[in-house]
Design a protein around this nucleic acid. Structure first.
Lengths: 225, 225
DNA sequence: AGACCAAGTTAAGCATCCTTAAAAATAAAG
DNA sequence: CTTTATTTTTAAGGATGCTTAACTTGGTCT
């Protein structure tokens, strides 16, 4: 296994490169990792020697295939842990990030696979980010639309909630809305642009403001949590 | 938080000192931690400077009060993780030790308390070892005897297995012996000091060596796991 | 007691990952 | 196109935690 530092560098390169294999400036990594520029330059050379990044002096770093593989494994561990801590242990959104940040570096394949199994092979983490599978493949992202742009009569899956203010979260949680809840759009009222939705057998009304912060995906587009 | 190395040294001192605050030879620690004697001497000095152990050259180390506190916290994390991995995630005895060995060093109080809560405040880990509570207090232990000191004809509960080598664990697991299994002592053979036990309807023979590592408690003496 | 052996300690050095400060390369401006 | 400013890299050094090799110390044997 690679050192915690190396894993964090690779993860940060992955995030900074925005998916594609762009080159990332060492200074950008230094900012994100909160270390000196000198430290990132040195690490860039080491990771390059190890074949995990492409690095040419003054040109930034980009992940190689094997580097990306490791970054995706770290990401997988992070996102599965976050989901697990929230779903199974009842921790709050605010608490889980730092915890997962540490656990992601000391979790064997065996353990993370058990966690994945226990969560019934989720595809997305509590923030709606995709969880790489055992081979490092990312699931297809559903097309997300804010709930106020949904079509009355159609059925959707709650896929993402932006703005993590506890007020909003508590409000929608109290209505029985959770990530991956199945909902049906009853109707949309013109006069206040609110949306009425059906969850299970209950119908609730969502204000315009609330409905803008909840994103849904079409049912067929989504296999399972 | 203290470094992983420091936590491991303190834990090892605790285990080696056998509960009471005896002095432990640095060479004994070196053996258990699989590092050189030089490394333990140096660490002894550092831990002593930090007030975590009593250390006089050539006289070994012993935990101070604050050192023992840390050791017990590490122990608490280790044992709760082991139990959690087995009970909640369905991992095997053989798998959990190494896993817990890593997790114990990157688990916040918040998380370990959640785990404790989820397990409904267990008192003993999967090996029958006591789990320190949040204040570092150990629960009262049931009276344990090694199986080779049991009385033929009597019935007991498997309460503890020492030596966590996967070989031993796998062996006894394959015989159907688990923590809290009820067993009956069939007889004890003088010529090789082996013990024959009955589990369910099967009778198995345990060598002297194996029988020394399995501890049982009398049937009425046992509250819960 | 004196000599000897084993246990324990110090010394020197290495790997990792970080720092600050100086030097070099690139980019920008006149 | 040269000078300046900015970014990036190298150099030197520190902390941690380990190694091997040499040296003390303590205990034992005669």
């Amino acid at each position: 296994m690679h050192s915690i530092s190396k894993e964090n560098y690779l993860k940060t390169v992955y995030h900074s490169a925005g998916g594609s294999g762009e080159q990332v400036a060492t200074s950008k990594l230094a900012d994100k990792l909160e270390v000196s520029n000198a430290a990132t330059s040195e690490m860039a050379r080491k990771l390059s020697d190890a074949g995990l990044v492409n690095y040419a002096r003054y040109k930034g770093v980009g992940l190689t295939e094997s580097g990306e593989k490791i970054a995706l494994q770290v990401l997988r561990r992070h996102r599965l842990w976050e989901l697990f801590l929230i779903e199974i242990l009842g921790m709050s959104w605010g608490e889980v990030h730092d915890e997962a940040e540490r656990l992601e570096h000391c979790t064997s394949d065996t353990l993370i696979n058990k966690i994945e199994e226990h969560l019934e092979f989720p595809k997305f983490d509590p923030h709606g980010s995709p969880i790489p599978d055992r081979e490092g493949n990312l699931p297809a992202m559903p097309t997300l639309i804010p709930i106020n742009q949904s079509v009355a009569g159609d059925t959707y899956i709650i896929s993402k909630v932006v703005d993590q203010s506890s007020e909003l979260i508590n409000h929608i949680t109290s209505l029985g809305i959770h990530l991956n809840s199945k909902i049906m759009i009853v109707d949309k009222l013109d006069f206040d642009e609110s949306v009425r939705i059906k969850i299970g057998n209950e119908v609730h009304s969502l204000s315009k403001k609330v409905s803008e912060h909840i994103f849904v995906s079409e049912l067929n587009n989504q296999d399972k949590i």
